[in-house]
Amino acid sequence: MFQTSRRKNIIPGFGLTFGYTVLYLSIIVLIPLSAIFISTASLSWQGFWTAVSSPRVVASYRLTFGASLVAALVNAVFGLLTAWVLVRYRLPGKRIIDALVDLPFALPTAVAGITLASVYAPQGWIGRFLEPVGIKVAYTPLGVVVAMIFIGLPFVVRTVQPVLEELEKDVEEAAACLGANRLQTFTRVIFPALFPSLLTGFALAFARGVGEYGSIIFIAGNMPMVSEITPLLIITKLEQYDYAGATAIAAVMLAASFLVLLTVNIIQWWSRQYTER
């Protein structure tokens, strides 16, 4: 121990790679990103508050965060189910299904947007079955939820799946031997082990939904106060040359997504503590 920590690192290239990493990170990410905060700081408090708290903006927060929450909850339930089926059961074409789960990561959001809009439109492949029962998806807030479910779909599956694969069968066997039925084994033994990863996937899906733009604008209908998401509002302000307004709203969204990111890190830290104990 003592020797290894004192041993000189003979690998070359620290100066070069560290310097390049920090330089490139600063030029591409940090300096541009600071533009948001510097521009926000130059606003007066009054101006900032008016920009971020007008009724139309508040309605867009409610839609964006509310729909993301609903979509992330749906993804938590069905993502867990999908991960379970993919890990535990045998079914034909499983490898193809497993690969396709990643499609929302790879499919450009604009393509997802126009496709979901046409499929869930009243005459669309799925919409025509929902229309008679009175469910309107496209061009309503429900459409926003559908788009957010699509783009958040891989997160929960991909965070839960590896944990489920690693789960020791012994524990389940022990529970069964001790007289637990299958449901008890799941709720008392399996679910607690999966919970941190489920929570992480949920938070990631939520964060992705909040920031999403491309797949939503085609299906949402974009009516102010009803189906207008916050990222679209930023673009609307930009098109009206209201740079201050756009920046102020962007700052609020950035703060929210950093908060989610922080939460994810805390969950992961907490679950490490929990598993190591």
Binding site: L33, A35, I36, V210, Y213, G214, I234, T247, A250
Partner: peptide
């Protein structure tokens, strides 16, 4: 953590920063 930053930012905001510059 800083390396992952662009992932946690809305694409619209990623565009906005270049408009601001």
């Amino acid at each position: 953590t800083l390396n992952d930053l662009p992932f946690s930012i809305s694409p619209v905001i990623s565009g906005l920063i270049f408009v601001l510059i």
